[in-house]
Design a protein around this nucleic acid. Structure first.
Length: 816
RNA sequence: GCCCGGGUGGCGGAAUCGGCAGACGCGACGGACUUAAAAUCCGUUCCCCGGUGAGGGGGUGUGGGUUCGAGACCCACCCCGGGCACCA
């Protein structure tokens, strides 16, 4: 009787052995080619759920596969540890955020180790420890010195529940990305990073293999529009500003402008408001400010606005047009002012109808009969009532008008982006303090690098006041100006945690390095990341920020690559009750129970077998049994006493068949691993096991051949079920460790089919199948097909029109 | 509204370049072993007609089309998921 498969025992044993032998620690001096395999690090929520495993187990399998293929694989792990939940725990349960977070780290590290992954734990990075955020602050200072960080007062997205501002990327459908609370607006002095400087480069995804979907999302997010900036004269109002500039994608319609609309928050609104209009305008501005993002962005709502009582002059035709404000105009896009062309823009059309403004047609539809429009005509046409451009096709008119404007000094061609600068200030406690001091004499002064880190004080009141809790920590706020030594105050906002995760992949290359954020040589050695895996929900947040950071740091001479992540794969999400698992929602399934019962190997395998990795899906453990049963079969089969095969002389045919199936399996498994098609890889391994079971039962393999096939199975299993494979490898008389063995390679000649099933159709309908040599000549195949008994009734008495032959597949007899 | 994915048995899913639809597994049903159960092993399992056989017909969201041949390609539509959305 072979011993029983007790996963928990062997898993514990091998995990300890691998750690003791430093099996998965990688050194730069290792001469093998490098492979940097990275999985998005988890947030320190407290418990690893099955969704985390779904992200991490298959990516570890891929990393292990690369390892066996001869790469030295850097596959690090760490913790995204700053963030609001730690603060909420402090408020709710009176636990200090640091303690709450570090306890979670302890627990999650233990859970992560149970996966049996190749993580090199010496390289662990935890973003909330001073040794890490010291360099987060240092990087902020480099960006500041490079002119990429600035402070400005602007209306910011405000989450009333989180009591902090949010970046645009963190607002989804007008709601806070974290807590789904409707977002409002606040005017605050905030720190921004100039991601817009990189808009054009971020649009290009040169040299990186990313899913098309993610690239499209990023392109949509950046939102490049070509058009013109045109100026409208307001010099007659006697203000310091002599013109109002607008961005438009339709400069060809400028002769149709009949009004202009400013965003209610536009700084020129007070100056442009006529005294008799002031009360109404102020009331409107106030109501617009109070609206939530959702109300304001609703496209269903009727357009509202008020007139300022002043006018601008369209320089192209001298028309005087009224100035208005309306909340459909956004301060943050373009110049915050739009030209109203009611005939050729539906929003302007609706607005003009409501307020009784004229709607002159300046782009004639091809079949225009001179009548008024019932809706805006937004398609191409011929320019009419357009001065020197009369008769120009509108498509050409766009560039022509922009060009003309440039000559006349009324503006010119312009590209505009939807992307805004990244707002990084947060009125929260649990984050990296922004290393800035405000001095009454010297103004905004960066903290000297030698004084970093600016330590986050442990004691703070977590009252949700809308201001950073740090504001009330006197010992933190009160400081001296690094320049003049006079009493000064520290910035009390902390940084968006997405800053911390914008460079963690760089820190992994040289953990513990204390002369900089990373060791330039080691960073250069490992970067860029060869394979990144993680959820698609980060398309326009983390993935965009990390690319921006890399490019900005490259321009500051700190990073040696243009892109951080060469290849990207997005696994799907495991949901429960149609919701993403999250601790706050309370729908988490912990893997610990399954691991305790069936072992990590079975859970790893099952997660891969569920379906295509990119799909994710509803969690259901019903099929786990099947994987457990199979692994037990593998166990028993591998440990069968092969000495009983000593007398077997396998036939040449059986020999070739086993070799063929083995090599075909190596090919299938290898190709599936390379393309992340884990589910079909598992199926291939199951089929191979079934086949070997049959071979064993029939005793058709001699001992040597059996050992070859069995060992191949173990080697192919090694990335997926590392513990089981190791145990069986050693038990079958091999030397530890299977994970230092090369991955099997296949021989196409041996894998080639000798016999094929030739499908015989009549008029495309299956009538028979015959087994024939793969090399069968076309004439013979057709002849064979026509002579088949089952084919006869379907061709008898009919005219054979033609016979289609697809080599290696089928013959289709077309009859009439 | 616009832009991406996707829709295949009771379930998860497979199907290379247009060539045997349903691999692999779950579940279910039947059987072997057992005093019994668990475990294990064997068989059946898309639907309909036919006798439970031989055989035939239908079938990959719906309706058309291209083709010797369509799950895959084209057109129109329905549904589901994701992204963007008053972006001038």
């Amino acid at each position: 009787m072979p011993p029983e498969y007790i996963p928990t025992e062997i898993e514990k044993k091998w995990q300890e052995r691998w750690a003791a032998d430093h099996l998965y620690e990688v050194e730069e001096s290792d001469p093998r080619p490098k492979w940097y395999a990275l999985t998005m690090f988890p947030y320190t929520s407290g418990d690893l759920h099955i969704g985390h495993w779904y992200a991490m187990a298959p990516s570890d399998v891929h990393a292990r596969f690369k390892r066996m293929q001869g790469y030295k694989v850097l596959h690090p792990m760490g913790f995204d540890a700053f963030g609001l939940p730690a603060e909420n725990a402090a408020i709710k349960r009176g636990i200090q955020p640091r303690k709450w977070t570090m306890d979670n780290v302890e627990n999650m590290r233990r859970q992560l180790k149970s996966i049996g992954a190749v993580y090199d734990w010496r390289r662990e990075a935890i973003t909330c420890v001073p040794e890490y955020y010291r360099w987060t602050q240092w990087l902020f200072l480099q960006l500041y010195k490079g002119g990429l960080a600035y402070r400005a007062k602007a209306p910011a997205n405000w989450c009333p529940s989180c009591q902090t501002v949010l970046a645009n990327e963190q607002v989804k459908d007008g709601q806070c990305e974290r807590c789904d609370t409707p977002v409002t607006h606040r005017d605050l002095e905030q720190w921004f990073l100039r991601i817009t400087n990189y808009a054009e480069e971020l649009l290009r995804h040169d040299g990186i293999e990313w899913p098309e979907r993610i690239k499209i999302m990023q392109r949509n997010w950046i939102g490049r529009s070509e058009g013109a900036e045109l100026s409208f004269d307001i010099s007659h109002l006697g203000l310091p500003e002599k013109d109002l500039r607008v961005f438009t994608t339709r400069p060809d319609t400028v002769y149709g402008v009949t009004f202009m609309v400013l965003a209610p928050e536009h700084p020129l609104v007070p100056a442009l408001t006529a005294p008799q209009r002031r009360a109404e305008v102020e009331a409107y501005v106030e109501s617009a400010r109070r609206e939530t993002e959702i109300q304001r962005l609703s496209t269903e709502r009727e357009k509202t606005g008020v007139a300022l009582g002043t006018e601008a002059v369209v320089p192209f035709n001298g028309r005087r047009v009224p100035l208005l404000i309306a909340d459909y105009v956004l301060l943050g896009y373009g110049t915050g002012v739009v030209m109203g062309v009611p005939a050729h823009d539906q929003r302007d059309f609706d607005f003009a109808k409501k307020y009784g403004l004229p709607i002159p047609i300046v782009i004639a539809p091809p079949d225009w009969n001179g009548k008024d429009l019932t809706e805006a005509y937004v398609a191409e046409g011929t320019m009419v009532n357009s001065g020197p451009f009369e008769g120009t096709p509108s498509e050409q008119g766009k560039a022509a008008v922009a060009e003309y404007a440039q000559q006349k000094g009324w503006g010119g061609p312009k590209v505009s982006y939807r992307l805004r600068d990244w707002l990084i200030s947060r009125q929260r406690y649990w984050g990296a303090p922004i290393p800035i001091v405000y001095c009454p004499h010297c103004g905004t002064v960066p903290v000297p690098e030698t004084e970093l880190p600016v330590l986050l004080p442990d004691e703070a009141e977590f009252k949700p006041t809308g201001e950073s809790p740090l504001k009330y920590v006197q010992g933190f706020v009160s400081t001296r100006c690094p320049q003049c030594g006079h009493p000064a105050q520290r910035e009390t906002d902390t940084m968006d945690t997405f800053i911390c995760s914008s460079w963690y992949f760089l820190r992994y290359t040289s953990p513990g390095y204390d002369k900089g954020a990373w060791d330039p040589e080691r960073m250069h050695h490992w970067m860029p990341v060869d394979q990144y895996t993680g959820g698609a929900e980060h398309a326009t947040m983390h993935l965009l920020y990390a690319r921006f950071f890399t490019k900005a740091l490259r321009d500051l001479g700190l990073v040696s690559c243009d892109e951080p992540f060469l290849r990207l794969f997005n696994q799907g999400t495991i949901v429960l009750g149609h919701h993403k698992m999250s601790k706050s929602r309370g729908n988490v399934v912990t893997p610990d129970v399954y691991v305790g019962e069936h072992g990590a190997d079975a859970v790893r395998m099952y997660l891969m077998f569920l379906g295509p990795w990119e799909h994710g899906g509803e969690w259901n453990d019903a099929g786990l049994n099947g994987v457990v049963r199979w692994l037990n079969r593998v166990w028993r089969l591998a440990l069968e006493d092969s000495s009983v095969l000593g007398s077997v002389v396998s036939s040449e045919e059986a020999r070739r068949a086993l070799l063929r199936v083995t090599h075909q399996t190596i090919r299938r498994v290898t190709q599936d691993l390379e393309t992340f098609q884990f589910n079909t890889m598992v199926a291939a391994l199951m089929e191979f096991t079934n086949y070997l079971g049959q071979v064993w039962q029939d005793r058709t393999a001699d001992k040597e051949l059996w050992h070859f096939a069995r060992d191949t199975l173990l080697l192919l299993l090694a990335p997926s079920t590392p513990h089981l494979a190791e145990e069986l490898w050693v038990r079958t008389g091999h030397t530890y460790s299977i994970h230092s063995q090369p991955f099997p390679t296949w021989d196409d000649t041996l894998a080639a089919e000798e016999q094929i099933t030739l499908v015989i159709q009549v008029n495309g309908r299956l009538r028979d199948r015959v087994t024939v040599p793969a090399s069968i000549p076309e004439a013979r195949a057709k002849e064979l097909a026509l002579s088949q008994e089952k084919v006869q009734p379907h061709v008898a008495g009919k005219q054979v029109e033609k016979v289609v032959y697809v080599p290696g597949r089928l013959v289709n007899i077309v009859v009439r």
